[in-house]
Write a protein that binds this DNA or RNA. Structure first.
Lengths: 188, 188
DNA sequence: GAATTTACGTCAACCATATTGACATATCTT
DNA sequence: AAGATATGTCAATATGGTTGACGTAAATTC
């Protein structure tokens, strides 16, 4: 069992630490958000795992096929920026997805060195299935929230993301997110 | 570059998929939340990485020492529930943290088979430093939010977590989260 | 009190996913 | 023609996860 004197010991050490690290007791750690994020993400990414298993895939494959599906014509270099892994690491799982027909490559027209990536119907179906599971969880969670609250949640997640990031895909996502926010803000 | 006909192709294939998988066009995937969560969590857990590197540790060590610090007297079995890994996998990183003095074990008084885990001062300092980085990001993100909005964000994260989970630590966290919510709700 | 179950540890093999470093090829840019 | 860029590939290595088997001590049950 979790020791119920947790609160006791935790808060005692907390005070000590505050002074040690920053000397600013006005900025206590956000334990609540830190831990809620951990568990929320754990369960969120856990949903697709069983399905992926059936396909003989892992989370790496999910990430790749997801972003390729969502941003058709994505370059390999873009994908590396998004996933923040090396090309060698990407290579392995990308090759599997290509070999098994979830993704296809086309040479860029303007720059024929580029390999533009596209999801096949097979790839789209897989992404849709996985996104369906995650969407169900999200819809369940948002069931009793007002549109204004939902907007605030999106704005928070968006604000948690690094801005100084030359990631093309991220730019699209953030501009879409702020477009929605602007719309709502005007209405208010 | 991300192909700018993304929107085009993505929405075309989307309609197709909706009908395929569920036949319910009223439940489009929540692409926005799905992707915001991915990027937010990527950057959120990315903060501690550099510090951990300096200590010769990885994210696995972070998770272990974090929960031990936060819930002093945590049993090994509890930790396994929280982290959802096997004892063999936990064993490796736990042994390192014990050997290097970030964590200590005590036998349970009531049940002497149990090894209750406690963070040392060294362990607490590490957790505090890492939590400081993540707290900075959270505070930055929440800077312009109203208390009501912040409460909604916590409620959302909480609602994203599986309920049917006999995890003791999680029960504490969720009860704390709902306690806060209740307080605010009464005030409203 | 003996048998069984529980909590934990450990050995060993293996797998997925990541890394660094070196090098190759085709293509674009200068 | 020279150099830079986009991608692919070979090889070695690290981290963190898995399954399976087995051991020990302590609690529980019969």
């Amino acid at each position: 069992m979790v020791d119920v004197n947790s609160k006791d010991a935790a808060s005692r050490s907390l005070e000590t630490i505050q002074r040690q690290s920053s000397g600013d007791p006005a900025k206590p750690p956000r334990w609540d958000i830190i831990e809620l994020l951990f568990f929320a993400y754990r369960d969120f990414v856990g949903d697709p795992d069983d399905v992926l298993d059936q396909f003989g895939f892992g989370r790496a494959h999910h990430r790749v096929v997801h972003f390729v599906h969502r941003y058709p014509g994505l370059k390999v270099a873009d994908l590396l920026d998004v996933l923040r892994i090396t090309k060698q690491s990407l290579g392995r799982v990308l090759k599997q997805l290509l070999d098994e027909g979830y993704i296809v490559q086309k040479s860029g027209e303007a720059d024929r060195r580029q390999r533009l990536l596209f999801a096949t119907a097979k790839g789209e179906a897989l992404v849709a299935q996985l996104a369906g599971l995650q969407t169900d969880r999200i819809n369940r969670a948002l069931k009793d929230f007002t549109p204004v609250e939902v907007e605030a949640i999106g704005r928070f997640l968006s604000a948690m993301i690094d801005r100084n990031d030359p990631d093309k895909v991220l730019q699209v996502i953030l501009s879409q997110a702020s477009a929605k926010t602007d719309g709502r803000t005007n209405k208010t």
